[in-house]
Every structure is written in structure tokens, then in C-alpha cells.
Nucleic acid binder design. Structure first.
Lengths: 263, 263
DNA sequence: ATATAACATTACGCTACGTAACAAGCAAGT
DNA sequence: ACTTGCTTGTTACGTAGCGTAATGTTATAT
């Protein structure tokens, strides 16, 4: 029909998408977005179709999907099923990254506190703890029937995947912190431990809403850690005695009325 | 004294630290951990001191600090002040990464829901939204006096840095989700929007504890977004009308008793 | 003495481009 | 016609943190 279709230079495409010229050249080189052709003098030009394809590439890339995967699976209009599967499995990767980052932040948080208190950092202990936790299989957790186990009893259905995962990440982050404090040699009654206990308590309250039956249901799930990922069990094993003591002291000190279901 | 100090081969060091031989060779090459010497045949060997140094390197690296920075600032016993400063500033970087990841996860969450509903993805809209948000300056936020602004009124002092940031990240994540739903063309009354409204409401409740005076204080801060980072204001501007409508419907449908301070 | 296993060494490759260094096109001035 | 100067495009090399492959060395078994 219209052989006088508009064509665009690399520069134009770059400006309209916010990418650099070099990036487009690279995309051409690796074949993820070949140009529609070259001018006599050897310069690239693109068509509208190319730009649409590019928009999609940029979208996928902004989610952190590698160019290779985009090229192999996503670049020429995948089926909804494939697309969904790709996105879901990529989400697992992102979740695991977030988990690592959370862990690192917790460690820094604890470390900075230690330094400010004039203590030196127990590298070896910390390093070992990190190694213990790094292997965690978050994927298991994404598939784990968290909803039915806790939320059934919490009567708080209709939660999104992200909501579920957020809770798990929070628990894990707090467990890690407790494990660190314990391993580093903190006493459950000292300031750091009490600040932690406060956060733990508030987290439990925010999830359970303070409802007694809900707390006991949550507690039951907690006890049932056999079904949790291996690494987390290990983490829990290290952290639990410390949490119990610190929380006991916190509750006493602050005259908090504790539901009967929590011994 | 003891010139017969024990020495270790690369292999031994590798096994004891969990690193690979290649990694140690690399560390030698870039000068972050030079060997104590070589045998006649040119093989590396290490001393106890080297291993201690290595432990520290591994610790810093597990936090995501680059080898170069470790080499320049941290590898030969930094002062506590320098160490603290390095860790703190690195935390900012990690927080920004988490923020990006959270955003990506929210987008995938929304995208997968769209796909499952049989809709196609509006790349351009999503891409623009991502670009709008990517520039956000989380660092500003870490320094922002969130504590005094909200927590003073919430009478919930003693919160850690991580606790503060977590709240900000949650807000930002929820705002992003609302903005997306809105931009994609969802109606505040449809299922996706209502699931969102539920989460928003529960988040507000979990922070404020449902206390009326606290909610109004929180609300006041929210209104005062002039002082928030620019990108977040933009985000809020897009999301607010949608949230207001969706929340109104949610509250009506579920017969929730709303504190008077929330109109 | 020699075959083999175990261990160590350097060289090249990877991801997604940024940063030169150089070439080509286009308008205005001479 | 030719130069000057600016914009735009091109390829080549470098980056981080190692993994992998190809090759060389030491210890042990025969």
C-alpha cells in the first residue's frame, strides 16, 4: 500500500525511547532488534513496526529480564500462556533477589549498631550465618500453600501473591535479625534485643490484628515448621529461643496484656 | 619467632572459605588479596593472616559491596567511622535496588492478572509509568525526617532505620500498583481494584492500629506531599483519585466503620 | 621409572552496554 | 569549489567477577 512508510534514524528512535544510540546498535548486533535496512552510506533505519517491537523489549528489560531470554521467548508475540509463565518465573528470581537484599540490609543494620556501640564485628559468625541463609529456596515458598494454612484461619482471603510473599519476607527478615543478635552474643534484655522484640511484636499484631484466635492459629503454623523450607527451619531453630526470651522481657517491661493463647 | 608458620595452598583456602580457586586467583590478580608468596614452581601460598583478611572480604562482598570499594576503603582495617559510613551509604544503594525490585514485582503482578483476564498488555503505558518512577531518589527518603513527622504523632518511637524504610517502600509499592491499575483503565469497582483497596486499607490499619487520632495524623502527612520526593508526588497525583474511589466502594461494600477523621 | 590422579596456572568468554576515536553528512561562509 | 564547524553515525576496546577450557606440575601407586 504505502511504500512511503515513515522511516526513522537511530538518533530519532533513541530520543523517542530514551535509549542511547549505542544501545540500539548493540540490539542490532545481537539480533534482538535488527534494523529494517541501511541507507546507501550504511546508516541504520527503522520502521514503525520496529519501534513497537522495541517498546516491548524495553518493557521486559525494565523488569530485569535478560536480553537473551527476551530474544528467545518474548520478542515475537508469545502466546499468553508462555508470557504468563515467563513473567511468573521471573518473579521468583526477583523475589529471591529481594530476599538477599533484605538479608544484607538487616546485617548492615545490626553491624552499624554494633559499631556505634564500640564493638568490633564478628566476621566469621556473620559470614557463616549468611552462608546458612543464602541457599534458601524462596520458590518453594511462592508455591507453598500459605494462603490456606494461615489465611483460612485468619479469614483474610483474597490476598494477592505479593501480599503473601511480603509477609514471608518480613518473617524471614526478622528471623535473620534475631539469629544475628543471638549469634553475636547479645543478651535478650539489652537494648538491641528489646528494639527487636518491639518490632517482632508489632509485626505479629499487624498480621493478626491482635485477635486471640488468629494469634493461636498463626502460632500453630509457626510451630509446624517441618513443612517450611529447610534453611528457614535452621534459621528458626537458631532464632527461636532468643525471640522467646526477648519477647517475654519486652512484654513484662511494657505491661502488655497478652492473649491467653500465647504462653 | 615462628618462621615455620603454617602455610596454605589455594585449594585449601578455597575449601575452607567456600570460594573457588579461580576466585582466589582473581583476587590476587586485582590485588585485593595478594598471596604471601609463591613456591619455586610458581604456585601461590597463603598464611593465617591472609585468611583473616579474606574472611572480611567475603563478608563485605556478601553485602554486595564491590571488590574495588572493598580494596580501596575496607580491606586494611578501616576506622570505625569509615566503616560505619561505608556500610550506611551502601545501605542506601541496597534500598534503591529493593525499591526497583518491588516496582518490577508489582508490575508483573498486575501484568499476570491482566493476561489471565484475557487482556493484552499496554506496553507503552506501563513503560512510561516505569520511567516516571525509576528516577526516584530513595536516598532523600532515608534522610527524610519520617520519624518525627509521622512517628511523633503516632507515639511509636524507637523504630529502626529498616522499619522506617519498610513503611516508605510499602507505601510506594502500593501507590505504584494503584497508578498502574488506573492507567491501564481499570474501574475502581472491579475485582482488581477492590483487591487493591483491601490491601491499602489493611496497610493503613496495620500502621495506624486503627486509632482515629493516629489516622488523621497520618492523613495530614499524606496531604503534605509537597515535601516528598518529586517522583513520588507525581505518582501520588496519578494514584490518589483512583485510591479514593476504590476505597470508598470497598468500605461501603464491606460495611466497614470508618473513623470520622477519614471523610 | 612411569602412569595416573589431583591440583594449579594462564587465557578467553560472558552481560549490556559506556566511552573513546574516527568517519560521514549537511549548512553556511568565503 | 572549498573550507569550517556541527551533528550524527560507525566500529573498537573496556568494564565486574568470575566460569570454563586447555595446559602444566606434584604426589602417589605400581
Amino acid at each position: 500500500m504505502n511504500s512511503d512508510e515513515r522511516i526513522f534514524s537511530v538518533g530519532e528512535v533513541a530520543r523517542s525511547t530514551g535509549l542511547t544510540v549505542r544501545t540500539l546498535q548493540y540490539y542490532d548486533n545481537i539480533g534482538i532488534l535488527p534494523t529494517s535496512g541501511r541507507t546507501e552510506s550504511g546508516r541504520r533505519y527503522y520502521t514503525e513496526k520496529d519501534i513497537i517491537k522495541l517498546e516491548q523489549i524495553v518493557f521486559y528489560k525494565s523488569l530485569g529480564i535478560s536480553l537473551q531470554e527476551i530474544k528467545e521467548e518474548l520478542v515475537d508475540s508469545p502466546t499468553p500462556k508462555v508470557l504468563e509463565q515467563m513473567l511468573s518465573s521471573h518473579m521468583d528470581i526477583l523475589l529471591r533477589k529481594i530476599s538477599s537484599l533484605n538479608l544484607a540490609i538487616s546485617i548492615i543494620d545490626v553491624s552499624v549498631t554494633e559499631i556505634r556501640s564500640g564493638n568490633s564485628l564478628p566476621w566469621e559468625t556473620l559470614t557463616n550465618l549468611i552462608r546458612t541463609m543464602e541457599g534458601s529456596s524462596l520458590k518453594d515458598w511462592a508455591n507453598y500453600d500459605f494462603d490456606s494454612m494461615i489465611y483460612d484461619s485468619l479469614k483474610m482471603k483474597n490476598i494477592t501473591t505479593k501480599g503473601t510473599i511480603d509477609i514471608y519476607l518480613s518473617i524471614r527478615s526478622l528471623l535473620a535479625e534475631a539469629a544475628m543478635l543471638s549469634k553475636i552474643g547479645h543478651d535478650p534484655s539489652d537494648t538491641s534485643a528489646q528494639v527487636f522484640a518491639k518490632r517482632w511484636w508489632e509485626f505479629i499484631m499487624s498480621i493478626t490484628g491482635g485477635d486471640e484466635s488468629v494469634i493461636s492459629a498463626f502460632d500453630a503454623v509457626n510451630k509446624n515448621r517441618d513443612e517450611w523450607p529447610e534453611v528457614d527451619r535452621e534459621l528458626y531453630r537458631i532464632a527461636e529461643p532468643f525471640i522467646e526470651k526477648a519477647l517475654g522481657i519486652y512484654i513484662m517491661k511494657n505491661n502488655i496484656t497478652v492473649p491467653a493463647s500465647l504462653k
